[in-house]
Structure formats: structure tokens, C-alpha cells
Write a protein that binds this DNA or RNA. Structure first.
Lengths: 102, 102
DNA sequence: ATCGTTTATCGTAGTTTTACGATGGAATAA
DNA sequence: TTATTCCATCGTAAAACTACGATAAACGAT
């Protein structure tokens, strides 16, 4: 009898690490993460004031970071507050650390 | 009198980190780096045997890793031996570590 | 000089990324 | 209701990425 879950629950570690790395592969996204992590800015508008790019561009970068699982947003009308996704942040840190220490 | 090097010797840390991260942003390139770092493979041909992609594709990935400074190749006719660029590897590790610990 | 091996590069096609202005949607305030 | 604010998404254009087969370049061997 065949066992379920022939494809693992968590994707291949390399794929996951690549996904995180790709999300980190743009200076603006690094800056966003730094700002969020420092708690200096959490609302989109704050980021728009600090980062030299159009509001729509920053929103796009936020979406990519969200798709990669590195951040999460909570609605706080009429604003949206973004925060680091601590669980995945930790996971990314572990993956990068393991990668560089292998 | 103007001081030379108005643009810093080393580029902005975020730009450099983004460049490294972007290079790491593909599973095949991660695999190449792992293979090189484990010393299991050093010649392009060895990589081609292990990695499921065309020779030209792998060569392209090697070039990107080289452009990012993460690897270097030395000619060993008729082959080319690739190795981790230890200096930049260390630099990347430091940048990533600093990034995740800020 | 010719051949075979190894690897880089070219040419190409499809996909993805990046950036911007413009528009739309949600929620509060008036 | 209407206006305002905040943010996401749409539409679009340029650039970059990804992959492949085909070709070229470098070099040793014959």
C-alpha cells in the first residue's frame, strides 16, 4: 500500500532557502525588513516616506516579502501594519546559518 | 580640496548583501555551492553529471555565481576547476549573520 | 595538422522582475 | 451621502532571468 505524502510536507530545503534568498535579493526589500525589524516603521506609509520609490513599487516589494513568508500584514484601518513573520524569519536564519556552516 | 573615493571602496552593505542573496536565490546555484564547498565536485563536468540541467545552463549559473563573487574558476586544461571564493564567502556569511541578528 | 574533450558563449524563446502612474476598494470622518 | 485617507492592484514597458540546443574556443593527444 502506498504511503501518503509522497511529496514532503515541507518543500525541499534548498527550494525554501532559495525562495528566502531570492526575496532578500533586492536592496529595497532588505531595507524594508530592516525597518520592520527595528520597529521603526510598521505602516506602509512610513516606509513610503523613507524609501525613495513610488508607493506602488513599495507595495509590490511588500507583496513579494509576504509571498516569501518573511513578513505579514495586519489591517489597522485605514492603514496596514506590517511585521516580520517571526516563525519564518527564524527558519530563514537557521537555513542560512546551516548553509554557511556546512 | 576634494577627497578621492567619493563613492566608497566597498559598495553599500545592503547592495552587496542583495547581490549575494540574489545569487543564492536559485536551487541549482545553492546545489552548486554545496557541491563545491563539500569538495565533492570541482570540475564543471562533475556538476553536469550530478545536476539535472543542460551543460549550458549550469555554465550560466556558474557565471552568475562568479559574477556575484561567490566562486572562482581556475583553468586546468582542458577543464576548469571551480572553487568557493573564500574571502567573499566569509564576507557573505558575515553580512547574512549581521542581517539576521540586528 | 587533425581529432576529441571540455567548457564558455551565442542565439532564442518564454517567463519573471522592476518600476511607474493610474485606478479601485475599504474604512473613517464630516 | 460625500469626501478623504491609505493601500493594493491594474496596466504597461523595459529589463533581467531561465533554459535549451548549437556553436565556438582552448588545449592535449595522436
Amino acid at each position: 500500500m502506498k504511503v501518503l505524502a509522497e511529496q514532503p510536507i515541507s518543500e525541499n530545503a534548498n527550494q525554501e532557502l532559495a525562495r528566502f534568498a531570492k526575496a532578500l535579493g533586492h536592496p529595497t526589500r532588505l531595507q524594508i525588513l530592516q525597518l520592520l525589524d527595528s520597529q521603526a516603521c510598521c505602516f506602509t506609509g512610513d516606509l513610503v516616506e523613507v524609501i525613495p520609490a513610488a508607493q506602488s513599487t513599495i507595495s509590490q516589494h511588500l507583496r513579494e516579502l509576504k509571498n516569501a513568508g518573511l513578513i505579514q500584514g495586519e489591517i489597522n484601518p485605514p492603514r496596514v501594519k506590517y511585521c516580520i513573520n517571526q516563525e519564518n524569519w527564524r527558519k530563514a536564519k537557521l537555513l542560512f546559518t546551516a548553509f554557511f556552516e556546512e
